[in-house]
Design a protein around this nucleic acid. Sequence first.
DNA 1: TCTGGGGTCCTAGGACCC
DNA 2: TCTGGGGTCCTAGGACCC
Length: 423
Amino acid sequence: MFALMDCNNFYVSCERVFNPALYGRPVVVLSNNDGCFISRSREAKALGLPMGAPVFKYRELIKKHDVAMFSPNFPLYGDMSSRVMHTLGELLPDIEIYSIDEAFADLQEFGRYDLEQLAQKVCLTIRRNTGIPVSVGVGPTKTLAKAANYLAKKDTRYHGVCVLENGISVREALGNVPVEDVWGIGRAYGRFLRTHSLTTALDFSRARPAWVRRHMHSTGARVQQELNGESCLALEQVRPSKQSICTSRSFGTMVRTREDLEHAVGSFASKCALKLRREGVYAGLVTVFLCTDACDRRSDHYRESRTAAMPFATQSTLRIVRYALDILKVIFRDGYAYKKAGVILDGFSPAFPSSVTPSLFDGDGTSAADSQALMQAIDTINFRYGSGTLRLAVESQSGWKQRQEKLSQRYTTCWEEIIQVRA
DNA sequence: TCTGGGGTCCTAGGACCC
DNA sequence: TCTGGGGTCCTAGGACCC
């Protein structure tokens, strides 16, 4: 059996832990740039604020019901996530951290336990240790555990825990899961399946396997097998290393000059290089993209991206930023109001020096080893004294700031912003 | 008249996830 | 005025190899 633990409206719950006045009130957390809703409390959902909807369309409703809004505070959510996962790992030793707010657990060694009780213990302990409310779904496959979790959250009768153990309870439950909400199906396939009168997870599980494979390929076939109790997806306890790394942002106000875009793209490239070093891999390709506002119907649009192959794979901020800025020179067009830009790294090699061949004719005077030591020194200083303590001149926020008007404190990761308690 | 068979690698596009 | 950011996997098709 597998369990899936999922935090309830995680980002909102993180804000509430440090601001108890928010309990019982409608609360939302916004996307970067304060653009749309990415986490909603139960009260906010009840008001009809949809996931992913732009904030400006709901101004009146927000004002009328005094909805509390927050800019996203990822340092806080990341730290709270690791606390939740730590507690979960103490209760259930074999876990796969699937996302910032979800983890699977293999329950093989709990064969003789009452799984319902075990799941309840998980909820209570995580709530007590971290303040974060969670739901737990249990089933014979990961996909069924996901479906169980969906029901645990959706249907209040389950009180946050749903265990699908025998064939009958599985079938009953799957009849209550809309087909597009099955893990791995999604909106597009959901629409397609509905045109063939397959509206629930149960309908889909009973469709002809050959038909499913023809229209939804191997992925769809696997989803169906998993729904029918045949486990195809194992617990992945070691996270596979990343294949690409991306840093991109929308701008708070339009960016028009090349200089301002250089500040943005330089900052994104530098951030990518840092992520690359944390991942422990070397990038061979740099991509830069930029675009005007796709939602703006009055102005001309321009979007372009270009990829450059670097002469050898690197982790160096200096090199990666230089290549990114070179690409920007090529794709930048004067006269447009840019809304968004980003940098992507891929073409990874695992480790230096075994699989990275340095260039014999590399002309910038720094050996790979020197640049390695330099990056390490910069990272150490920035870790100790705060990110951005040492940075390139081009990394600057001038001209491309994001909107971030409702930011809460970094209560758990920054001494200056630690919570204050009055006696 | 008539033109094989078996591969690999890469990319773009479309789907999915959180 | 105003619409996020960061990932994965799969397939088809083209270019190339012998």
